[in-house]
Simulated assay, not measured.
Amino acid sequence: MGGNRRAIMDEQDKAERTLSARIEAEIADSFDEELEMEMDDGRLERLLDGRDRDGDAGLLDRQVYFKELFRLQRELIKLQDWVVNTKAKVVVIFEGRDAAGKGGVIKRITQRLNPRVVRVVALPAPSERERSQWYFQRYVPHLPAGGEIVLFDRSWYNRAGVERVMGFCTESDLEEFFRTVPEFEKMLVRSGITLIKYWFSISDDEQHLRFEMRIHDPIKQWKLSPMDLESRRRWEDYTKAKEAMLEHTHIPEARWWVVEADDKKRARLNCIHHLLSQMPYQEVPRAPVALPERVYHPDYSRAPVPDDLYVPEIY
């Protein structure tokens, strides 16, 4: 009897160790998602000049970055739960020059969140029909309902930026935009939406470097459109447009926040930390979760799956 009992305990202990190892492997795999993106960023820089800029003085240490990023992502999950629980409505706008890092921080915000709660809106150029509508009309359907967070990867501020610089709107259109935006955003806030606006600021030299990296990297060349290249030529025009935009649309109800973005890692951490600080979220208590017992039917047998239905196991 004693031997049988020890054997059973050994089997249970082995099963627990196996389960623990699998859980650790899953956690490591989850962290690898972020590592893959970081390695990709570094690969671009090494392609360009053969050195690892993470070793440069002044750039954020990789270990510190990962530690803080994962901590902040846990807080984002708490924020998500709070938004769902309180039926809060949140809009976050990300604006900035091309290659300023808006997409990178959006990826890190959404990486571990529920896409049914937190969604990204990145609208293409307006259609002929949309150009004949009230300017804000195509953005309104994407605003959040209760319990949702919407991240705008560029927004209605296209009119104050690319449309103005590239001549896609008239001076009259621009004047009406500046007259309307404060009222429009005040209406959003009065309706219960929390509106947060970020401008990602990079230097002339840094944008030049990031464009060069995209040119030399076939995996990311698709990110360079003719419009991006033209925006590089019109750097000063974009600067003037940005200054006018901030002057006309920085209002108490929906102020702008500038993110220094020459260092991508610092920009991501600073932006996420600040976003969390703007919300009065609290951890929502969760009921303990227990897996139900698996139901077994003695008459059930799994039907065979034809071999030609399987994806070939190349790896």
Rank of each mutant, 00 (worst) to 15 (best):
Y139S: 01
M213K: 02
Q133F: 03
I27Y: 11
M9S: 10
V289L: 15
A267L: 01
E68G: 12
G103P: 03
E206A: 08
E11I: 09
E75I: 02
A15R: 12
K87G: 09
V181L: 05
R233S: 08
T239I: 09
I77W: 06
F200M: 13
S191K: 15
G55T: 10
D29M: 14
K186T: 15
D205M: 12
K242N: 00
R62G: 06
E260H: 11
R232P: 09
V289R: 12
D61E: 13
M213P: 00
D54T: 13
G50A: 13
Q12Y: 12
G55Q: 13
A160H: 02
I77C: 02
W156D: 01
F94V: 00
A254T: 05
A261C: 08
L76A: 03
P144C: 03
L79R: 06
T180Y: 08
E38D: 12
M187A: 14
E206S: 09
P226M: 05
Q282T: 13
R5P: 01
K67P: 02
L291C: 11
V259C: 09
D237Y: 01
V259A: 08
R266Y: 07
L151F: 01
P288G: 04
M1T: 11
F66S: 04
K186V: 14
K242Y: 00
P288N: 08
M166W: 10
M245S: 03
D52L: 15
I23A: 14
E206K: 04
T110L: 06
A28L: 14
V90A: 00
S191F: 09
G161P: 05
I314H: 08
P288K: 03
R129A: 15
V118E: 07
V90G: 00
R232E: 10
L48F: 13
S172E: 15
R108Y: 07
E313C: 11
T110S: 12
E130G: 03
G104Q: 04
G147N: 05
D299F: 04
S277Y: 07
E36K: 14
F211K: 08
I215E: 11
T249Y: 04
W235E: 02
L276P: 07
G3P: 05
G146F: 01
P141T: 01
D41V: 14
D228M: 03
W235D: 01
H297I: 05
R17A: 15
E171L: 14
D49I: 08
M37D: 13
I149L: 06
M166G: 09
A125F: 07
Y157D: 03
G3R: 13
M213C: 08
Y135S: 02
I93R: 00
Q278G: 01
R71C: 05
R266H: 11
A290Y: 11
V64A: 15
P126N: 07
P312N: 06
V83C: 02
F200P: 06
